[in-house]
Simulated scan of single mutants.
Amino acid sequence: MIILGVLAVLIAAWNVDWRDWLADTTRHHLSFGAAIALVPLWMLQAGVKEGLEVHFLGLTTLALMLGWRMGLLMSSLSLLLITFFGFESWSTFDVNLLLGVVIPFSFSYLVFLLTYSYLYRHLFVYIFVAGFLNAALTISMKTLIFSGFMVWSDQYNWQTVLDNYLSVLPLLLFPEALLNGMAITVLVVFKPHWMRTYLDRDYLINK
């Protein structure tokens, strides 16, 4: 798993225009600020069984702010930081990287691309579908693939995962969607130039 996770991060890093990024101080602050903002969010974990902890993701906001390449790099940095601080184990870093960052983050960005390509480009579509609904779908997908991995790797049986992990998912859907939806709304209204995936000409002008 570590090979797949690191490969995805390297592909993202390879395709970043580093010369342009290094020349823009605002993008430095925005990128690292977004990565740091995820750290306390991911530190707030709750769970009954070891390895079955739940927390809010915030990945949808990061995907819409930074795009796939830089967003994946910064969310991987967030994971590295919380692992370094001891909130996650180094022994599970490979699983957390692939199943907790790379796959759900890529899924969230894919949902945005689908909404951009096939739905009417309107501000409310961006906020409520690419943001609010997307966040709920992303945390659902992440929870499901983690559940499958726990059962497949024989760490827990299906009933234990269902009772101690999947059963919490309905309680996370609306708060995760609301958290990301509100963050995206505030950013679009007050700092639209911070949103790499948002342009007034696409979602607002002549609508």
Rank of each mutant, 00 (worst) to 15 (best):
M195W: 15
R196V: 08
Y120I: 13
D17K: 15
L72F: 09
F132L: 13
F174Q: 04
H193P: 00
L77A: 14
L110P: 04
G86F: 03
G33S: 12
I103F: 00
F149W: 14
A23Y: 05
A63S: 11
P104E: 01
F190V: 11
Y126N: 00
I127T: 04
A37Q: 08
M150F: 15
V95G: 01
L98I: 12
L59E: 02
P170T: 11
E50A: 13
T60Q: 05
L59H: 04
L179R: 07
K142T: 13
F112M: 08
T197Y: 02
L97E: 11
A12S: 15
I11R: 04
K49F: 01
D202P: 00
T26N: 14
G47D: 02
A177W: 00
L179V: 13
L41Y: 08
D202M: 06
G58W: 04
T26E: 11
L52M: 00
W152D: 01
F107M: 06
F146T: 04
L10H: 13
L99V: 11
G71H: 10
L171V: 12
Q159L: 12
W158A: 14
Y203T: 02
Y203F: 15
T83K: 08
L80H: 06
V151G: 04
F93K: 00
A37L: 11
L119P: 00
F56H: 03
L98G: 00
L137E: 08
L52D: 00
S91Q: 10
A136V: 09
F190G: 01
E176M: 12
T138A: 06
A46D: 03
T143S: 12
N96S: 13
Y165F: 15
K142V: 05
N164H: 13
M195V: 09
L22A: 11
H28L: 10
F107K: 05
F146W: 04
V111W: 05
I11A: 14
M1V: 15
L59K: 03
I145M: 09
M182Y: 08
V39D: 06
G131T: 09
L41S: 07
P192D: 08
M195I: 09
V129E: 06
I2T: 15
P175D: 12
A12C: 13
V129R: 01
S76I: 07
M150A: 10
R196Y: 06
A23M: 06
H122I: 14
F174G: 05
S106I: 14
V6M: 11
A23H: 09
L30Q: 09
V129C: 06
V6D: 12
L10W: 14
T185W: 07
L72C: 06
K207H: 02
L199S: 13
N15D: 08
D20P: 03
I127E: 03
D24W: 01
Q159E: 08
L137P: 05
K191H: 00
V16Y: 10
M74I: 14
A183R: 01
W158L: 11
W14C: 10
S78E: 02
P192M: 07
W158N: 07
H29L: 15
R201I: 15
F105T: 00
I36P: 01
L133I: 15
L66V: 11
D163Q: 10
L7C: 15
V9T: 06
G58S: 05
T26V: 04
W42R: 05
G71A: 10
F112K: 02
